[in-house]
Amino acid sequence: MSKTPLTVRGAEKLRDELNRLKTEERPRVINAISEARAHGDLKENAEYHAAREQQAFIEGRIAEIEGKLSNAQVIDVTALPANGKVVFGVTVALADEEDGSEKTYQIVGEDEADIKNARISVQSPIARALIGKEEGDVVDVQTPGGHRAYEIVEVRYE
């Protein structure tokens, strides 16, 4: 299996969630199961079944995060040479060739993508078109809204 790229911030976020699940959520659910067991008949005990369901979800999420972290290639973009080339983790300022509007995106891993916070997946059409290009280049992107041309105004390694 190939390594999945992850930014330093994305890896920290996953580690924080994993720590919270293991130190807070898991013990809380175990206590809830113990309390529900004390109420007697488990067949018709809704609290017990809800707590077990929640436990299964938490354990599944812990396994998922551990798998992602073990398969991650954490890339510290600040350690890369700032040569104006678009690579994973950089922040790119783009100017739309048609209307001149500017957009800024950070290229991140799939799990970190959040369009509301201007973080796009490395697998997205825009990111795929940008990777390997440099400041000043014009890229053509097939977007859901149609064909767009963007000029790369700035590449920041932050």
Rank of each mutant, 00 (worst) to 15 (best):
N83R: 05
V122K: 10
A50M: 14
R61Q: 13
D41A: 06
A118F: 14
R28H: 14
V108D: 05
E135P: 05
Y105K: 00
K133H: 13
G100I: 09
K85V: 11
D111L: 12
E97A: 14
I75C: 07
S70F: 04
A118H: 15
A32S: 15
V108M: 05
E151P: 03
E12Y: 01
E44S: 12
Y157A: 13
E66Y: 08
S121L: 00
Y105I: 00
R128D: 01
L42G: 01
R26H: 15
D140A: 08
N19M: 06
Y150C: 01
E35L: 14
G40C: 02
R15F: 11
R20G: 15
I115L: 03
R119N: 02
A38S: 10
I33G: 00
L18Q: 11
N71T: 10
A72G: 02
A95D: 08
Y48E: 06
D99S: 11
E12K: 04
V155Y: 11
V8N: 07
Y105E: 02
K68M: 13
D76L: 08
G89M: 00
E110M: 08
V29R: 05
A46R: 15
N45R: 00
V77D: 08
N45H: 03
I33P: 01
H49G: 00
L94A: 03
G100M: 05
T143L: 12
K85D: 08
A127G: 02
R28W: 08
S101G: 04
P5C: 01
L14P: 00
V87M: 06
A149M: 07
G145C: 06
R156W: 03
V92R: 06
E47F: 15
P27M: 13
D16P: 08
S70Y: 13
E158P: 00
Q123V: 01
E17N: 04
V139K: 11
E17C: 05
T104F: 10
A72S: 09
G100F: 06
G132E: 14
I120G: 02
E97D: 14
E112M: 07
Q54Y: 10
M1H: 10
L94P: 00
I58T: 05
Q54P: 13
Y150W: 05
E44V: 07
L6D: 06
A51H: 01
D111G: 12
A129L: 03
V29L: 15
G136S: 09
Q73M: 10
R37D: 05
D76R: 14
K3R: 03
P81Y: 12
E154M: 07
S121Y: 00
I58F: 07
K13D: 10
A38Y: 01
V74C: 05
D16L: 10
S121N: 01
A56P: 13
A127C: 06
D137P: 08
E154D: 13
A50V: 07
T91I: 09
K103F: 14
G136P: 12
Q55K: 15
N31F: 09
V138Q: 11
G136N: 09
D96A: 03
T4V: 14
E35A: 15
E53Q: 11
N83L: 07
G132I: 14
S101M: 09
V139P: 04
